[in-house]
Design a protein around this nucleic acid. Structure first.
Length: 486
RNA sequence: GGCGCAUUCGUCUAGAGGCCUAGGACAUCUCCCUUUCAAGGAGAAGAUCAGGGGUUCGAAUCCCCUAUGCGCUACCA
């Protein structure tokens, strides 16, 4: 393992691909690649009860979307496979047995019921919970008898009573734990599969992981892992614990209080590069203070010294602002291409391309495009006649103005431009003694169905004479002959 | 409860003893631009650096204590 740089993420395939996984992938890959190393994906599927079919594929798909694909992993290849833990069972059993032989672990025949009862009693006595080592005291004969009787068992690591286990966290510095506060953790479950603690140690060793870079929540497990590494006589990797992403209430980011699925962000139309930029801003910053940057920048500049130690709140508002910025940075052609997956079926390509520059500054997520432009691709949304009437005006005045606008409409020959239209409308407003804005507003509502819309004259240019005329007539009809809607 | 990690504007952060009467970004507010909404530009407001003790000529920066938050405390990861 000497001087190779190899980092990994080890997600569990338990549901939708999680933003926390992307967050870890970002820094692991950036550091590995920045140091000429490899970035590995390992699937930790040892909990069959939480296993989710398809989750592995979606994790990879999400990483691909974010351009954070690993160099090695399931379905990707590499010399250290298999990269799925259930395919490595034999390795874990072998080392669990090795630990038993070395006296660093022991079989435990306690039933889940007894363990639960034990914990309840400990809680009642206000004692810290932990295994009472009943099975550690079993004689060889008793153990053999249990084995012969076919009793199910787990394997527990034997934690020393004395001393302490310390390590240097690359981000936080020296961290130390008294061994006596460490539980005799189960490392091999009765179904023969390892728990996280054994699996992670065995795999990180065999996959020659040089730096374990994971979330803060693993700090308290680290001494157990170190004890296991040492028990097996293996060299220790480096450790770095990144801060945990938080909900607004500062608890660990969760599905209940946040959108944790990467799929959701993709569906909403967040750009992957905006997502990566935002995530990199959580707990890290560029040395030059630049806040808009690429993955390549992170790769080049990443150091553990610049990682913060407190958990950042995942702020959707800020992500959205960054996303809008990235959208505006796109050329019209690029934006059009990026929009494609978010467009409803059957939209006219030429018209979409015309709409892109008009809508770009108003877009914060690609998924918004369809909604912002409905009026360009179908009839305007329903609206009240009252909406047509500008403040401090009357339905009669609005109707009169609209009638004149209709005349103007008919008088201008196609192809028309928004400049022509604006000129015509300004002259008309002056003639009518209306404020230009009010005249525009009447037309705006007639054309878009709303008092707030993308630029009016560009919209009219896109819609064309016939359709605009139709909408003006419709508005006129709404205004009718009376003012009782007012 | 035990153990661990943390604590700078509402949020993300800069800051590694004097450059800090604490800087930037998002959000907020105001103004400009302007046909609405945006975008853009210019400003404003917003943090006695959790609190208290030290160390030092000098502390957001070093040490200690307290408080608070979070995490772990499963045959989940």
């Amino acid at each position: 393992m000497a001087d190779k740089v190899r980092l990994r993420i080890a997600p569990s395939p338990t549901g939708d691909p999680h933003v926390g996984t992307a967050y870890m992938a970002l820094f692991n890959k950036a550091f590995a690649h920045g140091r000429g190393g490899k970035f590995i994906l390992r699937i930790e599927d040892t909990d069959q009860s939480r296993y989710n079919e398809g989750s592995e594929r979606e994790i990879i798909e999400s990483l691909r979307w974010l351009d954070l694909l690993p160099d090695e992993g399931p379905g990707i290849g590499g010399d250290y496979g298999p990269y799925v833990q259930t395919q490595r069972r034999e390795l874990y059993t072998r080392h669990a047995n090795e630990l038993i032989e070395k006296g660093k672990a022991y079989r435990c025949f306690c039933t889940p019921q007894r363990l639960e009862e034990m914990r309840r009693e400990q809680a009642a006595r206000k004692e810290p919970p932990g295994y009472d080592r009943r099975c550690y005291r079993l004689s060889p004969q008793e153990i053999q008898a249990n084995l012969d009787a076919g009793l199910p068992f787990t394997v527990r690591m034997l934690v020393p009573d004395e001393g302490s286990t310390a390590f240097t966290d690359l981000i936080r510095g020296e961290i130390s734990f008294e061994n006596r506060v460490l539980d005799d953790q189960i490392i091999l479950k009765s179904d023969g599969l390892p728990t996280y603690h054994l699996a992670v140690v065995v795999d990180d060793h065999y996959m020659e992981i040089s730096h374990i870079v994971r979330a803060e929540e693993w700090i308290s497990s680290t001494p157990k892992h170190i004890l296991l590494f040492q028990g097996l006589g293996w060299e220790l990797p480096m450790f770095a614990h990144l801060p945990l992403l938080r909900n607004t209430d500062r608890t660990k980011i969760s599905k209940r209080k946040n959108n944790t699925s990467i799929k959701w962000y993709r569906q909403q139309g967040y750009l992957p590069e905006a997502m990566v930029n935002f995530l990199a801003l959580m707990g890290w910053s560029m040395p030059n203070g630049e806040e808009t940057f690429t993955f390549e920048d992170v790769q080049r500049e990443f150091t553990f010294e610049r990682v913060t130690t407190s958990g950042p709140v995942f702020d959707l508002v800020k992500l959205t602002a960054i996303n809008g910025k990235y959208i505006r940075l796109l050329s019209d052609g690029e934006l059009y291409e990026r929009l494609l997956p978010y467009l409803p079926e059957g939209l006219d390509e030429a018209r979409v391309r015309q709409a892109v520059p008009v809508i770009k500054d108003r877009l914060t997520r690609l998924g918004e495009f369809a909604e912002l432009t409905v009026y360009l691709f179908g009839p305007p949304p329903a609206y009240d006649a009252a909406t047509l009437v500008p403040k401090k005006s009357t339905p009669e005045a609005a109707r009169a103005a609209l009638e004149r606008i209709r005349q103007l409409l008919e008088s201008i020959a196609e192809p028309w431009t928004h400049e022509e239209w604006e000129g015509g409308m300004r002259a008309l407003a002056a003639e009518l003694g209306m404020k230009a804005g009010d005249a525009f507003m009447v037309l705006r509502v007639a054309v878009t169905g709303s008092q707030t819309s993308p630029p009016l004259f560009e919209s009219i240019e896109i819609l064309g004479k016939e359709e605009t005329l139709r909408r003006v007539d419709e508005a006129l009809a709404k205004l009718g002959g009376t003012s009782d809607e007012g």
